[in-house]
Design a protein around this nucleic acid. Structure first.
Length: 481
RNA sequence: GGCCCCGUCGUCUAGCGGCCUAGGACUCUGGCUUCUCAAGCCAGCUACGCGGGUUCGAAUCCCGUCGGGGCUACCA
């Protein structure tokens, strides 16, 4: 049992690609089979080395490790189609020799004219078979014109029926599957050739891919036949439903970010992304939603995959990400947070800073949904030139607030033990009990003065970590505003 | 246009002929809790696209219809 993920990196891997990769991976792991990763870079005008590397990095970051493919190798390599060109040429020639395929000399303009005519005549579009049975004279004539022929597969009469693991039996009448091109005029292979040849040569048994490829399946099967494969040896197909954007269109930059890099920068955890994506078009069958990667491999089966498309919902992803963050141990949370803090310039990475971060993280673990919120939440602890946020200044310049700060200062200065219990006790008895203020009003003023914002981690714990000296200094500064 | 796929709350889904006056999660609304923001707890809103069958009985099976999507490349 071997499952493959074979993207064509014409851009950054997006949510749909990743969902496919995830299902491929989970299915392989579930069955104890092999997960093969192959790069389909036959479209040299659109695939770049950068995108290929990005695809590799993305899969690694997500934890979707592969058993065969780039970097890890394997006995069926190479795993970049651009390095396998000779193989495709060979097969194309074999198909030519066996008359399964033929040279087609039609020009792009001629083809377009045929299609145009078909459109207006309202008949099934597709290649009209013009070059199927050219005479030697005709061929010679085309050659003398300098035309470079493409290799075109001859679709036999009849039809193709196959059983899709997700959709059941699917049939195509060959009247609607025209002869298709295997190799370009310059000899380079097309997807239809390379994908089928590689799946056979790499001994792939299960093809899980996007439903956009459903109608190209008869063509792949035709190539298997031409390669001499017995029907029982054809790979099994399962066409995954789309992941769509909010407005029912395919996911794009317009309706939500699609690049996985964006999610990583925002501070989404790989496990949250995988968990959420797993729920798009699949469910364990009960009410479970929060699953670890390990549980996913245990629970995942293609039979449970839907046939209908799903819409991507950022809110749900965020909710799951929040859950995953809360499930982290402090050390894990620390490891994930540090890069965000250094990148934001909040800390430089010294041991003292890291120690303080570690003490502060428990305070914010249940109040954030993305790691990118960590720097904003903890900035007040590290900032050198402290200043109250512009929007919040007005909150502490009124007389009532001044009185609160004045009194706070008076109560806190003499404290010999500086921890959240002693701070709270001092402030509560004076501000709330003696002055008779509402907690949210009184503590709100102290919060703005010490953290610089109306939103912060719990106040007394924050002040404890900030330290007595800094806390008092900020309150004094607040009084000057 | 042709071919193919799809159709349960706003969204993701459970449901595979009676357990469904349709369950869960996210969102949203209201409340509780509360030092802010969260988290947590409680409550509420809202769905089987439509029309015919089959059946004692249908979200579940069949047909039609409408709607959405994909493909229709010397892209994948």
């Amino acid at each position: 049992m071997k499952v493959r993920f074979a993207p064509s990196p014409t851009g950054d891997l997006h949510v749909g690609n990743i969902r496919t990769a995830l299902f491929d991976w989970a299915y392989a792991r579930h069955t104890g089979g092999t997960f093969l990763f192959r790069i389909e870079d036959t479209d040299t005008t659109r695939v770049t080395d950068e995108y290929i590397q990005a695809a590799i990095d993305t899969l690694k970051w997500l934890g979707l490790n592969w058993d065969e493919g780039p970097e890890v190798g394997g006995e069926n390599g190479p795993y970049l189609q651009s390095q396998r060109l000779g193989i495709y040429t060979e097969w194309a020639q074999k198909f030519l020799d066996q008359k399964f395929a033929y040279h087609c000399y039609c020009s792009a303009q001629e083809l377009e004219a045929v299609r145009e005519a078909q459109r207006t005549a309202n008949v099934a579009p597709g290649y009209n078979g013009h070059c199927r049975d050219l005479t030697p004279d005709q061929i010679a004539a085309y050659k003398s014109e300098g035309r470079l022929p493409v290799v075109r597969m001859r679709m036999p009469d009849g039809g193709t029926t196959f059983t899709d693991l997700i959709r059941g039996e699917v049939s195509f009448d060959h009247k609607f599957v025209p002869d298709f091109v295997l190799a370009r005029g310059d000899g380079s292979p097309l997807y239809t050739l390379a994908v089928a040849v590689d799946d056979v040569l790499m001994k792939v048994t299960h093809v899980l891919r996007g439903e956009d490829l459903l109608s190209s399946t008869p063509r792949q099967i035709r190539v298997y036949q031409a390669m001499g494969l017995a029907p029982e040896d054809y790979p099994v197909f399962a066409h995954l439903p789309f992941v769509m954007g909010q407005d029912n269109a395919k996911l794009s930059k317009r309706n939500g970010e699609v690049s996985i890099a964006w999610y990583r920068d925002k501070g989404f955890l790989p496990e949250a992304i995988c968990n959420y994506l797993a729920l798009l078009g699949w469910s364990p069958g009960d009410d479970r939603e929060n699953v670890t990667m390990k549980e996913l491999t245990e629970l995942f089966t293609v039979e449970k995959v839907h046939s209908s498309p799903a819409r991507f919902d950022m809110k749900k992803l965020e909710a799951i990400n929040g859950d995953k963050i809360r499930a982290l141990t402090i050390d894990e949370f620390l490891d994930w947070s540090l890069p965000f803090l250094t990148k934001a310039g909040v800390i430089t990475g010294s041991a003292d800073e890291i120690a303080l971060v570690k003490l502060a993280l428990p305070l914010i673990q249940e109040r954030i949904i993305m790691l990118s919120e960590v720097p904003t939440m903890l900035k007040f602890l590290f900032v050198k030139n402290f200043a109250v946020e512009e929007d919040s200044v007005a909150k502490i310049t009124d007389d009532a607030s001044k009185q609160v700060l004045q009194r706070s200062l008076k109560e806190l200065e003499p404290l010999s033990t500086w921890n959240h219990e002693s701070i709270e006790a001092a402030l509560r008895s004076s501000l709330i009990e003696e002055m008779g203020l509402k907690p949210r009003i009184a503590f709100g003023a102290v919060r703005v003065a010490t953290t610089g914002s109306t939103i912060s981690p719990p106040l007394f714990e924050s002040m404890e970590l900030l330290g007595k000296e800094a806390s008092l200094a900020r309150i004094r500064a607040g009084l000057e505003l």
